[in-house]
Amino acid sequence: MVSTIFLTATALPEVIWIGVIIKAVLILAVIAAIAGFGTYIERKILAFMQRRLGPQHVGPFGLLQLAADGIKLFTKEDIIPQHANKFIFSIAPVITAATAFIALAAVPVFPDFTIPFTDILVPSIASDINVGILFVLGMMAAGLYGPLLAGMSQGNKWGIIGSARTAIQFLSYEVVTGLSVLAPIMMVGSLSFVDFNDYQTDGLWLVVYQPIAFVLFLIAGFAETNRTPFDLLEHEAEIISGYVTEYSGMRWGLFFIGEYANMITIGVIASIVFLGGYNDFLFIPGWIMIIGKIAFSFFFMLWVRAAWPHVRPDQLMWLCWKVLMPLAVINVLITGLVIMI
């Protein structure tokens, strides 16, 4: 265990500040663009799955729909309700968007690479802290203050219901996420994403050893990113729009940028922890593999949205506490026993 840490400590080449800055800009630019672009992809794929065409008229194949939406959101009137708590109401969307991007600081997206013709090494993670996975999960948990504060500050009953659902849903599914990644953490013996990746360099992917943990993590990931089988926070048929009922313009847009960034983060964690990370696969280079995996997990989220219905809040809690959590605990126990033997 100690030896692996030594290895990573010595094997890391010198990372200079320019590399880190390039990485940070890369993450911000790429992920922010993808997060915005995600709305277009989501609409297009949902449309195809319902045999529709989706956005079509702005630009070729509707590709500039994103720009049209952006212009609309930026120029829309920013309404703050009269009896809302104005300060909290204003900062709530910022919390969602900011924490989503802070979480990405500790996530490795591409393998290390050197910029051609220079000696600048761009590291795989902008900031390689030893407890990366916990940091990312903690930051995503902190991001849930966005919906919570938004719902409570707007002085609207749908908002209050939405934020109450935020509290119960996220408090419960935090437990499942934590317990489900605990088993792989025990196997790898480290909390650093780089170690997870290196663990799977030669061996099989971790999903082979930990299929239950993978499924549990995916389910909890859907709940934490507020995606369809569990999108009770803004369930239109029940509570109008939940916590975003009173929002308009770019503040509303920030919630969605945060949500899509979180979806990508969940996709990155799933691909690095369970699906082999950014290792080369046969003849395919690692960076293509990781992009493919993230893209597939993003697609999977949209696919599920097209196919599966919502669950009721009581079913959600039932599923979490009576099914998923015991399963996760049993999985951790069995993993522990196997490791001990």
Partner: peptide, 18 residues
Amino acid sequence: VQLIVYVGAVMALYGFAM
């Protein structure tokens, strides 16, 4: 750990406040 634990704990407090 401080981050994760207290984020969750204070969220429960929010529930009471609500």
